[in-house]
């Protein structure tokens, strides 16, 4: 078995394959819950926990689960952990439980978790799957918290519940504002990525040119000799 590349998993999870901004998965909680930054952290933490646990369990059971019934099996495993999260959150953080509402049980059918189970955990080792779950969850949490912060500052004039000023643009608190913010975030994210790629390509090009000229110089040197 080949060794897991943890650095690649981390970069993929948080940046290159960010589940919210690059794969555009789990949009329903993204659009509905980002009215407040705190919601983003709560939802992100719940999803990260479920993602890590289900990834580990599925990766452990991947040789046992028959291929034909893998989806029901995955959903069953995910639902188990979602129930745990719900009960724990209801007991320890009743306020957050209230504000997440319906979207907490809906983590069961969250595309991110099923997609990672299907495309990663059922094909990779336990440690790599756990790392994948952690970093995918981090990417999701980061995206949700940032979007929540922007919408909270503009739509409610506050951040993490602390009132900054008495000026609200109601558009950003409404669902149309959610779509708008999401679109702008995806656009800015793609722009940053393409800029980085361009810079990298330029660097590689310069390096290859330098090595070519070096080759030429060497060749002419040999000819001279």
């Amino acid at each position: 078995m080949k060794k897991a590349n943890f650095k690649k998993i981390a970069v993929d999870g948080v940046v290159a394959q960010n589940p919210t901004l690059k794969l555009v998965l789990g949009t329903c909680p993204t659009l509905a819950l980002t009215t407040m930054a705190m919601n983003g952290i709560g939802m992100g933490a719940a999803v990260t926990f479920v993602l890590i646990c289900s990834n580990v369990l599925i990766s452990l059971l991947r040789s046992v689960i028959p291929n034909q019934v893998r989806i029901p099996a995955f959903v069953l495993i995910i639902a188990t952990f979602v129930t745990i999260v719900r009960l724990v959150m209801d007991k320890l953080l009743p306020d957050l439980y209230e504000s997440l509402g319906l979207y907490l049980p809906l983590i069961v059918v969250n595309c991110i978790i099923l997609a990672r189970a299907e495309s990663f955990a059922s094909k990779n080792g336990v440690l790599a799957s756990a790392a994948d779950g952690l970093f995918m969850g981090l990417g999701f949490t980061l995206a949700l918290t940032l979007m929540g912060a922007v919408r909270e500052i503009l739509g409610a004039g506050a951040i993490f519940g602390i009132v900054l000023w008495d000026f609200q643009i109601g558009f950003f608190a409404s669902s149309s504002g959610a779509f708008f913010t999401y679109g702008v975030f995806i656009a800015v994210f793609s722009l940053c990525q393409s800029l980085i790629q361009k810079k990298r390509a330029k660097k590689e090009y310069q390096l290859s040119m330098a090595s070519q000229t070096l080759d030429k110089v060497c060749a002419t040197d040999e000819e001279v000799k």
Binding site: Q168, I169, G170, F171, F172, S174, S176
Partner: peptide, 8 residues
């Protein structure tokens, strides 16, 4: 409409 929704 943007202004109307935002500053009702």
């Amino acid at each position: 409409i943007f202004a109307f929704i935002s500053f009702t």
